[in-house]
Design a protein around this nucleic acid. Structure first.
Lengths: 237, 237
DNA sequence: CGAGCATAAATTGTCTGTCAATCCTGTTGA
DNA sequence: TCAACAGGATTGACAGACAATTTATGCTCG
């Protein structure tokens, strides 16, 4: 399984990784302004290198840049979030379908294993465990679907929606329903029912989207209240 | 329709545009090695700027870079091309479906107009005209589908497959069938039949994929013959 | 003549410093 | 209260420098 190509880890790639993780984990919050200097410190590289890394993250949709104002951690409008969730539903639905058409029982087993893992993590209250299990689930789904381009597209969309992962898994009762939805996918794959798998994937994402948009609306109200107090509240770290 | 935000054209964006066009138009050929200096000359900017532009194109999939060896115009393996066409079929199928669900008769009219435009261009033998009409068709489809994220994803995939646009439109009889396929999409949209529109989109892409893979195989044979003659033929400009 | 290796040249990865253009902020003045 | 303006901070872009690494050259030896 190991790639025979030992890619030399350049400083740029490491910086990229550091910044990406900082955004995905929420260490850097949406709307936060990122001065080049602060990023240099954070990543431990020079300005040239940081700018290249920022360019990469920009085209992944994690950062938006306005010329002469510098990079900002991307903020999703409600419309953008809606579009992204819709796209995600399409992509994952197709992944589910392909997983049935091209996967075998080993993939179905991996899906069930991931669901079980998530259920255990949920009962243990381990949010990190839940996220890990989720990653395992999608790894299995994509392994079955056997389409690298689709996998990358899904990853990109998921990353852009990463902000909602935290608020979602914390929402009361959401994790439990989420497990049930994923189990429905796993069972459809086991049953080799492509249409059912596709539908189950779409249902799962639609449920996620519903919650995310709710969270977004609530957050917007909160931001409004803060904004009334002092301006540009989100831009200060 | 005009955006109220007049984005300042930075040198980087212009360089990006120049390089992207050079790749999309085939001026820079797949597999061709790109030294930083030559790109500086081509884009008329400094090395720092060119490197940032390359980073952008790299993450668009138009360029691949191996550390310490420099950027190369991306080459698609047969498997990658297959995956991308499959993904493209999914995306455009969904776009067609959404265009029916969310578009109105103005979008249907725009689709038909684009098809007519393409038919005229085809009869006039204008390849450029065909490509323009194609762009108009997709613009109309995406306007109807009303999903910016989907539009961007489609654009990215189409760009990565740009290499095949030329060989495809030249193939004897292909343009004619292509027009017929697109007309089928436009008619499905006019008839407000979402399933038919989706199916028509998928059929169109599958037909394109079939030809592209054929072209790819033929090209591979040709490259083999050249490679037997002298090594690294593709790497010399 | 060709294989193998040492050396030179070219190229990339990265940093630093510089300069103009632009944005942000606080102050001044009407 | 609001407009204009000046100063500082930040970005956009460039050139130059240097180490690390790849690629090309050329030499030796069998």
């Amino acid at each position: 399984m190991n790639d025979a190509a030992p890619i030399p880890p350049t400083a740029r790639r490491m910086a990229e990784e550091i910044l990406r993780n900082a955004i995905l984990t929420g260490e850097l919050k949406p709307g936060q302004r990122l001065t080049e200097r602060s990023l240099c410190e954070l990543a431990g590289v020079g300005r040239t290198t940081v700018r290249e890394a920022v360019r990469q993250l920009e085209s992944e949709g994690l950062i938006s840049t306005v010329p002469h104002r510098g990079p900002v951690v991307a903020v999703l409008s409600e419309g953008e979030a809606r579009d992204l969730y819709e796209l995600r539903a399409m992509l994952e639905g197709q992944a589910g379908r392909l997983c049935v058409l091209r996967g075998d029982e080993s993939h179905a087993a991996a899906l069930h294993a991931a669901v079980d893992q998530m259920e255990r993590a949920r009962q243990a209250g381990s949010m990190l465990g839940i996220l890990e299990a989720n990653a395992a689930f999608y790894a299995a789904l994509n392994a079955g679907a056997r389409n690298e381009a689709l996998r990358q597209a899904m990853l990109g969309v998921q990353n852009r929606l990463a902000f909602f992962r935290f608020s979602s898994t914390r929402w009361p009762g959401r994790a439990e329903r989420s497990v049930a939805e994923l189990r429905a996918i796993a069972e459809a794959v086991t049953a080799r029912d492509a249409a059912a798998a596709e539908a189950a994937c779409i249902r799962h994402i639609e449920a996620s989207a519903e919650l995310a948009l709710l969270v977004l609306a609530e957050r917007a109200r909160g931001a409004d209240m803060v904004r009334r107090g002092r301006r540009n509240a989100m831009e200060r770290a």
